[in-house]
Design a protein around this nucleic acid. Structure first.
Lengths: 241, 241
DNA sequence: CGGGCGGTTGATCGAGTTCAATGACCGTGG
DNA sequence: CCACGGTCATTGAACTCGATCAACCGCCCG
């Protein structure tokens, strides 16, 4: 029981500057503490929720790392995102009262469970919380637009460069290095997310390494030349203007 | 003045079964009527809002047809969606109080302006409206996941087939034909949305026509064999299982 | 120490892009 | 009413990037 429902407080959480509590005053945060039913542990490889599951709650990642993916009728699937501490999972479930994607832990993880009916109730009382919920959903929409841009109009090198910069930037916001990281996902998962095959991901990593832009050793990646990476992202055509 | 701010009522709108009012009782709908500041006309080719514009309102498409698109630093842009009557525009603006994409009218259009602060206020009073706003945002997130799936893991034929079926289905929900349509966008815009070049779009149209699946004449499209189109979408590999 | 999963690298292939020319449609003005 | 210009669409031919097929490596864990 203790393992699967641990009472915690947003007000004392070290993610409060990144997670739901952002911008709430102490009184509002206390209400939020009452909302959070419990935490839930998810083992590496296990699903927090799967496509088709009934929707009841949103989840705030407390520790660990997730991927979300959608699946077609014929079995192919597409990774739609990777989520780390402080990020919110489950927004897809609201429309149809069931989840349309699956969330799988890529390493042992822990999430805070936010029963959605209670969150709505509390949002009606506190306009700051209400607006914050709206912002979180809008942020997800904007993020998705960015992924569409990436998938629809970037070449392999640009996609991987954008992916690495995005990842390291989010890790940095959580206190990790600005230039080093250990990837939590396989080449195949990166490929699925970026719309390319695992071999292409691997080759592109190698090319970046040969060019002295990054250092790669399996899951470990170090960015040596962030500017070069940035230049790759927003400079498609190989002309020199 | 009259041309640009026309008072209207959701309660008497013929889109009330598709738009914001869905599921609201008469009292709630009356409140909604007070919310809607006015309508706004947008000429073909003009922007309802552009990336970077201050966010103040959501917009419900009353008539006409829009595209939304995002632009990279280096000038490429990606069409992220097409919107028709009853659909909501502007959700991307909430996070940063400014729009991150542009909405361009593909034909003369009219929208209902929904000031977002007032919508939030009203949502706090009426939980049905609140939940409905959440559903609209979640629906957009799920739609975006579908586009990612399309862009990340489908081939040209599948993308176009999925696109045509989606479009005709939405038109049918609005009382139009189940099999015929006139496209409001160019081949280039379709290509941008689907992550392919206009020539490929055109060639794929021609191939579908040669196969007797559709009839195409410029912007006019008639679906002759919807099942074949459906089979193309969720049956990637050309093996016969 | 051996088995297996994940990753790298090479060789070949092909879907879709690119470049280019032609054709259809539409509004405008002579 | 028709000629003209412009935009949008179609089609062909050559090319290219990334996919596919295949072999091998290396790291981790039992």
């Amino acid at each position: 029981m203790d393992l699967h429902s641990i009472k915690v407080a947003c007000s004392s959480c070290n993610l409060r500057e990144l997670c739901i509590p952002v911008g709430l005053n102490p009184g509002e945060m206390e209400q939020l503490d009452n909302l959070i039913a419990n935490r839930r542990r998810v083992r590496r490889g296990a699903a927090l929720f799967a496509a088709g599951d009934a929707f009841t709650s949103l989840y705030a990642v407390r520790s660990g790392f997730f991927k979300t993916s959608v699946t077609t009728a014929d079995g192919r699937d597409q990774v739609t995102g990777f989520q780390m501490a402080g990020e919110i999972l489950g927004l897809d479930g609201i429309v149809q009262d069931k989840h349309s994607c699956s969330a799988i832990a890529l390493e042992d993880a822990e999430v805070c469970v936010l029963p959605f009916d209670k969150l709505e109730q509390l949002s009606r009382e506190f306009s700051a919380l209400q607006h914050h919920v709206h912002r979180i959903m809008s942020r997800e929409i904007v993020r998705d637009q960015g992924v569409m841009l990436l998938l629809g109009s970037m070449r392999a090198e640009e996609r991987l460069a954008a992916f690495l910069l995005n990842l390291v930037q989010r890790l940095h916001a959580r206190g990790f290095s600005k230039s080093e990281m250990v990837l939590r996902m396989t080449r195949e998962e990166i490929g699925s997310y970026l719309g390319m095959k695992l071999e292409t991901v691997s080759r592109t990593f190698s090319r970046f390494q040969d060019d002295g832009i990054i250092e790669v050793k399996q899951r470990y990646v170090r960015i040596l030349d962030p500017d070069a990476l940035g230049a790759i992202v927003n400079h498609a055509s190989p002309d020199g203007d």
